[in-house]
Design a protein around this nucleic acid. Structure first.
Lengths: 336, 336
DNA sequence: TTGTACGCGTTATCAC
DNA sequence: GTGATAACGCGTACAA
């Protein structure tokens, strides 16, 4: 038997309306009745039922977050920021790990619709037509986190991947490297794949450095992917002096493989990663990486959701700055 | 304007009762009306409102998960398993990162109560009196994941930490090590601290190996903690040939510091970690570790929650087996 | 300042 | 087979 507002009202000899006012700090009651009701509430251990409230207010105080199951390092930092802000706004967060599987994503979206969530942070895959149409019908605020949409007017929070890749490459070049390899994602990946490749080639081009057999596209962004890709890279281009990896796990893979091949990092080979997850500092040697303010980005995305909820109009997208976090995996190459 | 069961009923010229029956597959309607109603549902794009349903059924189809903000590596694997099963049961998961801060934990518990969640997986800190009493009043199933309670009858899912630590230590001893150091958690930590220390000393004792200055208690289980602790260990006991670290991150810290001190792993020093998170395989050299079936444990805990919900009675606790995952950070010590 | 009564969207219990 | 109608727990016009 859960105890309800009625029980309080009865015991306090007031109407449920009065109790409701007091609970919600709406004006319209005397100090005395307040005191009395508060006492009864305490005595009975009454607590409002958010479900019943939600039915009226049409707000569930819950937001949904769609993230890919992979790359959990990245996501846990995003989620940390998201949850932090959501909690400040008195809302909770439902995490949906989509394992970049279209079907499961749709299942989750249906779940979120049923639950009447107040907003969605979409951080998986690309925003496809199917997802977009579905969410649009749900009629709740959406923001894209570290993802892009093709043609739909959905605000996003991310870094400029191409620019970041450009910066990383140029960093390597400034350190004196000429023959630089890249372990990239796939070209089909319009978020973390092609743009970073573009940034890389752009930097190489502007510095009049050839890009012939320098790029190996890994099927994913994981550690094993990095190992395999590096083997291929070193085979097709044995003279590389530096590698730009499109993720930190990828970078760890190359470091590991290099270690096995007795290639010293950074003496024989410089390596720079991407994302600057906590892993990076734990690497041996500590990994220089392109840092994104992951937690902050998660926070901003969440703030945008609530702003959209409260103002009922869209907000501006936000590109966050990236930075090179220098550690010890890159070495300056002496001119000869 | 969300469209409701009423809209469907009106348009289909039936009562809302009939629509409800059809939506929920309750008997009591003809094939024809079913067809008609289904068409209207499709046409209008009607979807039941889980909040309204929850108000009646008293089930929110949501479970709450309390996890510490730290040790996110561990937690993300737990959560993966939890979410997987929860989704199979048609429920969603609210994650609450408690940052092992008593106040925030209570705030979250209050949030979960308001939201009328159906069950709680508690995986932070120790289950204190305060938490237990609160949750007990909520009157929902609870299971402890990788945690213990003092005296309360709450089912749990975990490994036998003491035994696992014993196994790890004995593994090192079998490899010929005699002077073995341990980087532990704090003694006050009755979950991952003292039990692992006990397992360690027990193994040492049984093998008649002295434990004098072999143990350094780190304040936490992180990378930096490991670095600091190892510095202390190597100072107070320069002859250690092997180290048992109470977490993988701790182990990475010792490997890193050892590397800086030009101590070769595993040639000069063997290291074994604990948890076997994904990090372990990415270490250089790959880290031998005591593995827990993290994802499976999360799954089991969740299954237990739903069993308790459905049967309305408690379930048995479950101790999962651990295993030594051999990689390359431990070397057999030659007898002299 | 306070109470009455209706509605939120749904399910369940009756009648018919 | 089908349809009113009363809950579920709460917020809020409106009236008093």
């Amino acid at each position: 038997m859960t105890i309800t507002i009625k029980d309080v009202a009865k015991k306090a000899n007031v109407s449920i309306a009065t109790v409701s006012r007091i609970v919600n700090n709406k004006p319209g009651y005397s100090k005395e009745t307040e005191k009395k009701v508060l006492e009864v509430i305490e005595e009975l251990g009454y607590h409002p039922n958010a479900i019943a409230r939600g039915l009226i207010s049409k707000r569930s105080h819950t937001i949904g977050v769609l993230v890919p199951k992979l790359s959990s390092m990245l996501m846990s930092e995003f989620i940390s920021g998201i949850e932090n802000i959501a909690h400040q706004f008195g809302s909770s967060v439902i995490i949906c790990h989509t394992e970049s599987n279209g079907k499961k994503t749709m299942q989750y979206l249906e779940l979120l619709r049923e639950k009447q969530i107040d907003g969605i942070i979409f951080s998986s895959e690309v925003l496809t037509e199917e997802y977009y149409q579905f969410m649009k019908k749900m009629d709740v605020p959406i923001v894209l986190l570290s993802t892009v949409s093709f043609d739909y007017p959905v605000p996003y929070v991310r870094v400029d991947d191409q620019h970041a890749a450009y910066t990383a490459t140029e960093y390597l070049i400034k350190k004196g490297h000429r023959n630089i390899g890249m372990i990239s994602g796939t070209k089909e990946d319009v978020v973390a794949g092609q743009p970073r490749i573009d940034g890389f080639t752009q930097a190489m081009d502007r510095n009049k450095l050839p890009v012939t057999n320098n790029i190996v596209a890994a099927p994913g962004f994981g550690y094993e992917d990095g190992k395999e890709a590096f083997k291929q890279l070193i085979t097709q281009n044995p003279d590389v002096t530096a590698v730009f990896a499109a993720s930190d796990e990828l970078a760890l893979g190359v470091i590991s493989t290099a270690y096995q091949m007795d290639i010293k990092i950074p003496d024989d080979l410089s390596v720079i990663g991407y994302d600057n997850v906590s892993l990076a500092e734990m690497s041996i040697p500590p990994l220089t990486s392109v840092g994104q303010p992951l937690s902050t980005m998660g926070e901003k995305a969440t703030e945008m959701i609530f702003e959209m909820i409260n103002t009922n109009q869209s907000v501006e997208s936000r590109i966050f700055p990236h930075e090179i976090v220098e550690r010890q995996s890159v070495k300056e190459l002496k001119k000869e």
